[in-house]
Design a protein around this nucleic acid. Sequence first.
DNA 1: TCTGGGGTCCTAGGACCC
DNA 2: TCTGGGGTCCTAGGACCC
Length: 429
Amino acid sequence: VDVAQAARLAPVYALIDGNSFYCSCERLFAPKLARRPVIVLSNNDGCAVARTPEAKALGIAMGAPFFKIRDLCRKNGVAVFSSNYTLYGDMSRRMNEIYHQFAPEVEVYSIDESFLNIVGLARDYTAYAQELRQRVLRWVGIPTCVGIGPTKTLAKLANRTAKTYPELNGVCDFTDLAMREKYLGDTPVGELWGVGRASAAKLEAIGIRTVGELRALPPKRARQVLTVVGERMVHELNGVPCLPLEALPAQRKGIAVTRSFGKAVTTLEEMQQAVAAYATRAAEKLRRHRLAAVTGFVFMHTHAFNGDPWSHTGKAVEFLEPTDDTHELIYAATRAAAGAWRDGYRYAKAGIMLTELVPVAQVQTSLLATLDRERRARLMAALDGVNSRFGRHTLYPAIAGHRQSWATKFERKSPRFTTSWDELPVVAA
DNA sequence: TCTGGGGTCCTAGGACCC
DNA sequence: TCTGGGGTCCTAGGACCC
């Protein structure tokens, strides 16, 4: 294959994603669950965020609160897991390694979806995609589907089609006009990538219900109804690419660490402990991305669900110099938490959002700064080094707390089978 | 009498994605 | 008792600049 020549051709996008990805990761290490319904819960064991087809068939909706479906799950033998992001992240990394063997340009779109530009890499794109699926299944163990198209939007639709129609065997190619004719037209417009509830209602109001009808809309009209986003959509549906493959991730614009509490927080001391722990995590993320924060925001709020009085408060944080220093972030965040705190509420959630970020390499230092930045940076490097070698929570600031009464719930979490020596799977033979 | 044109930056809010 | 977290992009309007 002449990769340089292929790159000059109009792109052919392949979108590959894991089937019920989080559930498939759990099944991989629990083969007994192969035919049983499986769901994975959100943080704090709150809602169902991943379901196998067997679980969907029981009527478990995306986002269903777990306490409402607990009985249903027990009666039907549904295997229920907390989110295990370490495990899912590692499986995702392995899958993307394989994608790079199949295509020179790969865009990691989400933890379980990647776009590949496969133009010119095969005579028969469907066969190529099947080969890719087989290798991922054999080497990583995760079942996938692939959608192919001349634009990302069509590849997305093709992927959905591959999942919907079993006779396609997991691959659908929309560079093939006959395939588009056969499967595309009657798809409800709300299924389209980028059309949510609000846009679907606007389209409905002008009599557009299906993808086929939207495709026939004049682009200028689409712009009137759905701004430039709608205009791009119509072009993409007609095979004119407007969304390029982004192989290099763009610089992050914000970093957030926000969590629901496992148990309501009612004292400022606990709140500051939680906020310090979140600031610690935020600082780790900053350093991993080689970014420093200039401004941010600490917030806390109650839950209206159970009749608790409503309170949403927050306070800005600002740094004299951009920083990625854990202790500087903790100091600012705990002070902001004290400023935002109001007595007498049962807080259910808090977080820190860092909003203005600059690359560490471009930090403008202040004449007034008093910190010894170089020593601080060495300390942070040592901290990260220890935690990377011995596990994330080996070394942490005392204020972030050893006993965390408010800690987010993960009561049904599987082991980190592939990333922790203590949690390796045991095989009996 | 005649009163421009073109641009940036910031913010808030809405919408959407996985 | 129990309802997630972390992102991006677009628009409109105001302030400001030359």
